[in-house]
C-alpha cells in the first residue's frame, strides 16, 4: 500500500493565501503610482508627506470637479493679490463677491487654489446671509510663482471664477 501525502497541508494553504493577498495589494498600489514619482497624497490624510513636485494636471482636475461644466458668470468674483511677493511664506490676498446677500443671492462656498503648489487647495469659505458682505483677507503660502484661482459657488447654482498671477522670489516649503 502506498502512503499518499496530503497535498493541502496547513502551511501550503497559508502560504498560498499570503501570496494571493500580496499579489492583489501590489497590483493596486503599483497601479496608483506613476513611474519615478513617490506616492502622492492629495487628500492630506497622512501626518508626514514627502516633498513632491507640483502636478498642474491634478490641479486642473480639481478645478474641473468644482465647476462641473457649469457656465461661468462674468464679474461675479474679484481677487486682489500682489504682483510680486518677496516671501512665499506669507502672500496676502483678498477677494470679494458682487452680490446682494439676500435670499438666494449669496455665495455658498468660495474656493481658493494655487495651481503650482503640490497641494493646490488652500481654503474653502462658507457664507450665510448674516455675513453682510462676502469679502475675506487671508495670507497663504506659495512655492513658486503661479496663478491663484478663486471660484465662487452661489446658492442658486451659478459659478464665477477669476485668476491672478503672482511672481514669487523665495518660495515656501509647502
Amino acid at each position: 500500500m502506498i502512503l499518499r501525502k496530503n497535498i493541502f497541508t496547513r502551511r501550503k494553504v497559508f502560504n498560498y493565501l499570503i501570496g494571493c493577498v500580496f499579489a492583489m495589494s501590489s497590483k493596486y498600489s503599483l497601479a496608483g503610482q506613476q513611474a519615478g514619482s513617490p506616492f502622492r497624497d492629495r487628500f492630506q490624510t497622512y501626518r508626514q508627506t514627502f516633498r513632491i513636485e507640483p502636478d498642474p494636471e491634478e490641479a486642473r482636475r480639481i478645478v474641473r470637479n468644482i465647476i462641473k461644466g457649469r457656465e461661468i458668470r462674468e464679474n461675479l468674483i474679484f481677487l486682489k493679490a500682489p504682483d510680486i511677493a518677496e516671501n512665499g511664506n506669507t502672500v496676502p490676498i483678498s477677494f470679494g463677491v458682487n452680490c446682494s446677500m439676500e435670499g438666494q443671492d449669496y455665495p455658498r462656498i468660495v474656493h481658493i487654489l494655487v495651481l503650482d503648489n503640490p497641494f493646490p487647495e488652500i481654503a474653502k469659505f462658507y457664507f450665510s446671509p448674516e455675513s453682510g458682505e462676502a469679502s475675506v483677507d487671508i495670507r497663504i503660502r506659495m512655492r513658486t510663482s503661479s496663478n491663484i484661482i478663486a471660484i465662487a459657488e452661489m446658492q442658486d447654482g451659478s459659478v464665477g471664477e477669476t485668476k491672478a498671477f503672482v511672481d514669487v522670489t523665495i518660495g515656501a516649503c509647502s
Binding site: N89, A123, K124, V136, I138, I140
Partner: peptide, 17 residues
C-alpha cells in the same frame, strides 16, 4: 472656513458681518 496646509503660519483672517 476650512483650511489646508497652504495657509501661512500665524494665520490672519478678516471677514465681514
Amino acid at each position: 472656513s476650512h483650511w489646508y496646509s497652504g495657509v501661512s503660519a500665524n494665520p490672519f483672517m478678516s471677514f465681514k458681518m
